[in-house]
């Protein structure tokens, strides 16, 4: 009895820094943000209560909000599919035992993730330049005249997905770790049964990997909701607002137009959308995912 009590005290003592941090740097801001979202607030003048006004303005009247939301959804839907397919493919190929030894490949796919964010943006501004850019120069070698990636509202988002793909080596590493947990014998049995590579992939690899896929997709989705620096630095949201993503518009409202209340309402809508998204993904996983 005494030991349980001592453990209770000790346990709480050890986690107490986290509890304090959680209350001060997370709980309070989340609640304060809810409060600010119901006000008009510009930092200088005291907050002015306006009920659900900010939410109604955003949802019913703000076209820019809708554009930012749709842009972000595009990145989530298209980006998730493209990046998941490519990274899993790379991981499956790298997981082959004859190739696994060639750890140099693993390194190659991983190191772009190490480029500091701001430098990443600078480098990609160069890569995507229409005339002097790396991408179009390489395309010209195979006779393709590359477009102005960031000048075209239809191509700017795909260009961003390319950039995100370049830096998704972390997902490859995570898939590889997941693949290594799949027992080799399953493949051997399947091979004996005459299953080809594709069938083995879709009947064994993908289902067994689904928790890892879920993890990576959730990580990517959260990343997209938060992605700010890329569009802030590279395009400032242009052309024709095609790269105005949710977090950029939130930042603009908060720190360029000083609409802290409106921006807080955006933050809460973001929280709700992100939670819904993750709940849906978890639901899908529960329904269709593999269970041992």
């Amino acid at each position: 009895m005494l030991k349980a009590r001592r453990n209770q005290i000790n346990g709480l003592l050890f986690v107490s820094p986290w509890i304090v941090g959680f209350l001060v740097f997370i709980t309070y801001p989340v609640l304060a943000s809810l409060y600010y979202s119901l006000t008009k607030y510009d930092v200088i003048h005291p907050p002015e209560f306006r009920g659900l006004g900010n939410y109604l303005d955003l949802i019913l009247r703000d076209d820019v909000f809708r554009i930012a939301l749709l842009n972000t959804l595009y990145m989530i839907v298209v980006g998730t599919v493209v990046i998941t397919v490519v990274t899993i493919t790379i991981a499956i190929v790298l997981n082959n035992r004859q190739i696994r030894g060639l750890s140099v490949f693993r390194v190659v796919f991983f190191i772009p993730t190490l480029v500091p964010l701001v430098i990443l943006c600078i480098v990609w501004i160069w890569i995507l330049q229409p005339q002097t850019g790396l991408l179009n120069t390489c395309l010209s070698y195979v006779g393709i005249r590359g477009p102005g990636w960031l000048a075209d509202p239809r191509l700017a988002k795909p260009a961003f997905i390319m950039m995100f793909l370049w830096t998704s080596g972390g997902a490859v590493i995570i898939y590889l770790a997941g693949l290594q947990d799949i027992p080799e014998t399953l493949y051997e049995v399947a091979s004996i049964d005459g299953a080809g590579f594709l069938r083995r992939t879709f009947t064994i690899t993908v289902p067994l990997l689904s928790p890892v896929i879920l993890f990576n997709v959730v990580t990517y989705v959260i990343g997209i909701f938060q992605s700010f620096a890329e569009s802030f630095i590279i395009t400032s949201g242009g052309p024709d607002r095609s790269t105005l993503f949710y977090s950029l518009y939130l930042y603009q409202n908060a720190f360029q137009y000083f609409k802290m209340g409106l921006a807080s309402a955006m933050a809460w809508i973001l929280l709700i959308i992100a939670a819904l998204f993750i709940a849906i993904l978890l639901g899908l996983e529960r329904r269709f995912g593999y269970r041992q």
């Binding site: 330049q129 229409p130 477009p147 102005g148 960031l150 000048a151 075209d152 509202p153 052309p239």
Partner: peptide
């Protein structure tokens, strides 16, 4: 405009 921006974008 796409062509123009692509052409001039430095």
């Amino acid at each position: 405009p796409t062509t123009m921006k692509g052409f001039t974008s430095g």
